[in-house]
Structures are given as structure tokens and as C-alpha cells.
């Protein structure tokens, strides 16, 4: 039997991408602790990090109470949005899938605002998460149903259009509610564009186990997505239970995107862009795409957040706006690609 020839060097070296992405993420986390709208010398940041008792108390407070939770929020929210986007793209075989574009984030935002403004729910993020899950699921399902109407079923472009329609519709409902309720308005200011500054450390600790469980579920679904990528018939022929894959992935997407919205608001494009960048490096294997997205998406979000802090000093631009500013052109380039409809 002829042995399979070894892969070309380009592919062998691609194995180094995960450690490289981990290093990049670590560096960006350090930058996120070091840079802010108030310029603090690196040495003092290091003091505050490693010698809390001896550091300037004001600097110590900035680093530990402001920048640390903000960085952690970037890690959690970025990873959650990236994985949710990669799962949605794999599940729907739609390169335009993203929780921010397919109604998931809009549904979660609307549910949160509805709960706060209409039913007087507590605005603690851990309470809001449950409304976010329900809204995320409802948003995703309605876009899926709407996109599948008419001849030819759910094509990528039709689903994206349905997603944009649902996002605008829910967005206008959300605005209407917010303008009538000062409490929701106060809360909503953060969600409007997406920001990493609203979550405190206690909240982040509470959502971490939930996100970790959803991330494990997402990664465990990767081999099944590899089969599904060959078409539904081939996936069944390979012994996959397609309904079960959909259910598992939808559960993971709901928890990941819902939590991300409850913590940081509807940040778009992270879930769209990162899996595409990851796929360029890894090729079409979902196990690798998801693993790299898990490291790459928080890198992107934290980088955007840091950028937003330094470009407009002493003011700040919210991370969600920076991401949208950078992600928009990427989205257009993607939508213009010829082979889009065939994916």
C-alpha cells in the first residue's frame, strides 16, 4: 500500500498557530492593563500588579478595579461571541452568520430592555442573563424561519437579509421602550454600541462557569460540524444525528451570545470576522477553527477596546464602535466574494 506523502511545509508549520495566538492574547491583555484614557507609566502598572501594597493606591485601584475586570470582560465576551459566530457559520453553512447579524444579539437586547422597562426586572447582569437567553433563542429562531421562507429555502444571503430585518425591527422596539423608561435608558446606553466597562468582577465570576460549559459544548460539537460541512445527507450517511447537532449547537449559541449581550451589549462583527480569519490560517477543519477562534476573538475585542481608549484621549470610544468601524469593510469585502452563495 502506498503511504500518503508528507504534507507541504506550509501546512506542517501551521501547527504553530495556537501557541502564537495564545502569546498574542497574553500580550494584548497586558496592553489592556497598561493603557487607558489616563496614561499610567508601565513601571507603575507593574508595581500595581505585582506589589499591590507598595503601589500608588490610586493607580492600584485603576489597574485592579477598572482595567482588570474590563480585560476579563474582553476575554469572556470576545471568546463567547467568536465561538457563537463560528458555531453559527458551521451550523448554517452560511459565511455571513454572526450573532449580531442574525438577530441573536438583537433578540437578547430587546428581551433585556423589555424585562427592565416593562416588567421592572432587576438590572443585575446575572438576572438579565435569563431574559437574554430567551431573547437570543427567539431572535435566532425567527430569523431562521423567516430566512427559510419562499423558494429555494434558506440561502446565505436571504438569511442575512432576514437577520438584518429582524435586527432593525427589534432595535426599533428596543428604542421605543428605552425612550419611555429612564431606568432602561440608563442601562441601555452601554448596550447601544457594546462596551466592556459595565461589568464588575463579581458578575464576571458568576457568568464564567456558564460560559465555560457552553464553550466545552461548542468545542465538542466541532467534529460533527465537520461532517455537516459535507452536506446533510453525507452527515447522516456518516452516522451523525443532524437534529441533535442542531440542538446542541443552538443551546451553546444561545448561552454564549445571550451572556455576551447581558455583559457587554450587542457587539457585532467579532463573531463574523474572527472565524473567517481563523479559517484562513487553519483551513476548513472546525476543531481547529473553533480552537483558534477561542483565542483570536478575545484578542480582537481587547485590541479594539485598547484602541478605543487611546485614540480619543481623554475621551473613550466604546469597543463595540471600534469593532464595527473595523468590521464593516471586512463584511462588505466578504459579501462581495463570488463564491459566497456556494458555501
Amino acid at each position: 500500500m502506498t503511504p500518503v506523502p508528507p504534507p507541504p511545509a506550509r501546512l506542517r508549520h501551521a501547527a504553530a498557530y495556537l501557541p502564537a495566538a495564545a502569546v498574542l492574547l497574553a500580550v494584548l491583555c497586558l496592553l489592556s492593563l497598561a493603557f487607558g484614557s489616563r496614561a499610567v507609566p508601565i513601571a507603575q502598572v507593574a508595581d500595581a500588579l505585582f506589589d499591590r501594597a507598595g503601589a500608588d493606591p490610586q493607580i492600584e485601584a485603576i489597574v485592579w478595579n477598572v482595567r482588570m475586570p474590563r480585560t476579563a470582560a474582553g476575554l469572556l465576551v470576545g471568546a463567547a461571541l467568536g465561538l457563537a459566530g463560528a458555531l453559527m457559520q458551521g451550523l448554517t453553512r452560511n459565511p455571513l452568520a454572526d450573532p449580531g447579524l442574525l438577530g441573536v444579539s438583537a433578540g437578547a437586547s430587546f428581551a433585556i430592555v423589555l424585562a427592565v422597562a416593562a416588567f421592572g426586572a432587576s438590572t443585575a447582569p446575572t438576572n438579565l442573563i435569563w431574559y437574554a437567553f430567551a431573547g437570543a433563542l427567539a431572535g435566532a429562531v425567527s430569523v431562521h424561519l423567516l430566512g427559510g421562507l419562499g423558494r429555494g429555502g434558506a440561502t446565505p444571503v436571504k438569511t442575512a437579509l432576514a437577520g438584518i430585518a429582524v435586527t432593525f425591527l427589534l432595535g426599533s422596539f428596543t428604542s421605543a421602550l428605552v425612550l419611555r423608561s429612564p431606568l432602561a435608558l440608563d442601562r441601555f446606553r452601554f448596550w447601544a454600541a457594546g462596551s466592556l466597562t459595565s461589568a464588575d468582577a463579581a458578575t464576571l465570576w458568576q457568568v464564567t462557569p456558564l460560559l465555560a460549559a457552553a464553550a466545552v459544548l461548542a468545542l465538542a460539537t466541532a467534529p460533527a460540524l465537520n461532517s455537516l460541512a459535507l452536506g446533510e445527507d453525507v452527515a447522516v450517511a456518516l452516522g451523525r444525528r443532524v437534529g441533535l447537532i442542531r440542538l446542541r449547537a443552538t443551546l451553546a449559541i444561545t448561552v454564549l451570545a445571550g451572556t455576551a449581550v447581558a455583559v457587554a451589549g450587542p457587539i457585532v462583527f467579532i463573531g463574523l470576522v474572527t472565524p473567517h480569519l481563523a479559517r484562513m490560517v487553519t483551513g476548513p477543519d472546525h476543531r481547529r477553527i473553533l480552537a483558534l477562534t477561542l483565542l483570536g476573538a478575545p484578542s480582537l475585542l481587547i485590541a479594539a477596546d485598547v484602541l478605543g481608549r487611546v485614540v480619543a484621549r481623554p475621551e473613550e470610544i466604546q469597543a463595540g464602535i471600534v469593532v464595527a468601524f473595523l468590521g464593516g469593510p471586512f463584511f462588505i469585502a466578504l459579501a462581495r466574494r463570488r463564491r459566497l452563495a456556494e458555501m
Binding site: 467534529p223 465537520n226 460541512a229 459535507l230 452536506g231 453525507v234 479559517r279 476548513p284 458555501m343
Partner: peptide, 20 residues
């Protein structure tokens, strides 16, 4: 007429036949 994902190598495609 099955459709392969963009950019998949022959080896990866054939390997996916092993999933059962």
C-alpha cells in the same frame, strides 16, 4: 453531486469518512 467545503484538501475530505 456533493459539494465540498471551500479549501478542503483531499486528505481532509477522505479522513472525514472515518467519523463513524
Amino acid at each position: 453531486a456533493p459539494v465540498a467545503p471551500e479549501g478542503i484538501s483531499v486528505l481532509d475530505l477522505v479522513g472525514r469518512g472515518r467519523s463513524p
